[in-house]
């Protein structure tokens, strides 16, 4: 069976230790985590949303989802990598430190990727780029010869298409 990347969204009560429970389940059962994002999404109701990407066959991911569902403070779990695939986005900040002669090239690429310049000095530039992870990967590749100095990526956030909600 085909091993591929899956994104799982988890709606949890924002209580102490809940992230540890989810992450501990992955390490304890030998599943890998490729990506992890977590943030409070509803302060009043005390809800957080965790987005995890992992690799495995459909059966393994089904098993992971069932295991996560058992965790007491978990409201809902959804495998986002189904038909149609969900909308997945990531944000990255990328710092370039380069000689002025290379700068124009960098700015041109940034334009093509609709990256914002969020900080500029004579020697450096920080771009903010948003999109699918693959787009960010490409952006990073192109910036490598142009003085790429530092990267920070937010990790994935994902929502289902159409009217479907978690």
């Amino acid at each position: 069976m085909e091993i591929k990347s899956h994104t799982i969204s988890i709606l949890v009560d924002n209580e102490a230790g809940v992230l540890g429970r989810v992450v501990g389940l992955f390490s304890g059962r030998g599943y890998n985590i490729e990506n992890l994002t977590v943030a409070v999404i509803d302060k009043e109701k005390g809800l957080s949303r965790i987005t995890i990407s992992t690799t495995g066959t459909d059966i393994i991911v089904e098993q992971i989802v069932a295991q996560i569902e058992r965790i007491v403070p978990v409201h809902r779990v959804l495998n986002m990598t189904v038909n149609p695939p969900s909308v997945e986005r990531e944000i990255a900040l990328i710092k370039i430190i380069c000689e002025p002669r290379l700068r124009n090239d960098a700015l041109q690429i940034a334009n093509a990727f609709r990256a914002d310049k969020v900080d500029i000095t004579n020697e450096s530039c920080v771009f903010q780029v948003v999109g699918k992870p693959s787009k960010i990967d490409t952006f990073v590749e192109l910036m490598k010869p142009l003085g790429l100095a530092e990267i920070d990526r937010s990790g994935l956030v994902a929502l289902s298409r159409g009217t479907k909600v978690i």
């Binding site: 102490a16 230790g17 540890g20 501990g24 389940l25 304890g28 965790i71 007491v72 403070p73």
Partner: peptide, 14 residues
């Protein structure tokens, strides 16, 4: 204890 027993409890509370 919450940390130590996390994988061996169904749930735990501090």
């Amino acid at each position: 204890m919450i940390g130590i027993t996390r994988p061996s409890t169904k749930h735990s509370y501090l």
